[in-house]
Amino acid sequence: MINELLNMNGYGLYVWSAFSFTLLSFLTLYSVAKAQYIRERNKFIAKYGSLDAQKAKVARTQTINQEILSGSQSI
């Protein structure tokens, strides 16, 4: 049964390599997108932390800033 599934009448190499390439592409794209997201979020956190009291007060008025910091958007 497993041999039959792997071999697929001699077409196994083609079928499995097509599916593997697809899943590997998904994994790569997801990893790149996640890394970019984390990098920008960390940059934001660092910048937000370095604001002086007056600027931080202005920044706090925007809900989106709080949402980025809250981590509710973790993927």
Partner: peptide, 26 residues
């Protein structure tokens, strides 16, 4: 669904990029 997932991740990244620029302008 996968393209929706990647779209959401990229879109959120773009929004944070915009907010990063917004913090620079404060």
């Amino acid at each position: 669904l996968f393209s929706l997932l990647i779209f959401l991740m990229k879109y959120n990244t773009e929004l944070i990029k915009l907010k990063n620029k917004g913090l620079d302008r404060l």
